[in-house]
């Protein structure tokens, strides 16, 4: 395949997972380039990246997921990649699905493809409360955009060149996944969800704790409503 694909992996304190994530990607998507963005990790993530000669960009301090991922999109845009695939650095996303994520873009069916764990409802389904939150966000996004997403918080995504250019210019700084979907819908991009299975994160702790869940919901709700007001 002649299409150049960049796999963007945001990583914050993922010393236990990052090496196996990369090994999996090399096995499942050997022809694609990978780029880890180290978000100012305070553990040995950067040392592992250097030691194993894994291509990476290092943010000097912790900037949050949105800024981290956007750095990857900026890199993809400047190097002229045709497709960018976003894969979490914690091992939740199964690299074997990358092929099916990219396929609708190659076929010209969609410009954005989201890997959803709630289409086939198999694999790790997340906690009850998390699922309720995701359902609420799906409902809210459906209400504001008229498009339905079963898994709007999924960070397992593939986008084409036009979306890379848009994201390089503009990407929400915190809790970006649902907000980015609303922005894409507003700009008229065609999105598609495909079924994937996710795993429970292998090791280390998630960046979202229950205490911040309410803050997350309020902030994302506000972001979606404000994006709607941009018309």
């Amino acid at each position: 395949m002649s299409k150049r694909i960049l796999i963007i992996i945001p990583a914050y304190n993922e010393q236990e997972n990052i090496a196996s994530v990369i090994d999996n990607l090399k096995k499942e998507a050997p022809s694609d380039d990978v780029l880890v963005i180290n978000d100012g990790s305070s553990d040995h993530t950067l040392a592992i990246l250097k030691e194993r000669h894994i291509p990476h960009i290092n943010l000097p301090y912790n900037m949050g997921i949105g800024t981290t991922v956007q750095t990857g999109y900026k890199y993809a845009a400047s190097k002229g990649y045709e497709i960018a695939v976003q894969v979490d650095g914690d091992g939740q996303h199964d690299a074997s699905y990358i092929k099916s994520l990219v396929e609708p873009i190659l076929a010209g069916e969609a410009q954005v493809v989201i890997g959803s764990r709630y289409i086939n409802k198999s694999g790790f389904q997340s906690s009850f409360f998390r699922r309720m939150g995701i359902r609420y966000l799906s409902w809210l996004i459906g209400l504001t955009t008229g498009q339905s997403f079963t898994d709007p918080t999924s960070g397992f995504r593939a986008v084409n060149k036009e979306v890379i250019a848009l994201f390089a210019q503009r990407y929400p700084p915190d809790y970006p996944e649902p907000e980015a979907l609303v922005m894409l819908a507003r700009k008229g991009f065609i999105t598609k969800e495909i079924p994937v299975e996710m795993k429970e994160r292998a090791l280390g702790k998630s960046s979202i704790n229950p205490m911040s869940a309410i803050y997350y919901m309020i902030k994302v709700t506000l972001a979606i409503i404000i994006d709607k007001m941009r018309g």
Partner: peptide, 13 residues
């Protein structure tokens, strides 16, 4: 600050 940090990191790369 966000923009500057990203540019710095990209230039380092």
């Amino acid at each position: 600050h966000r923009e500057l940090t990203q540019r710095y990191a990209l230039l380092e790369k």
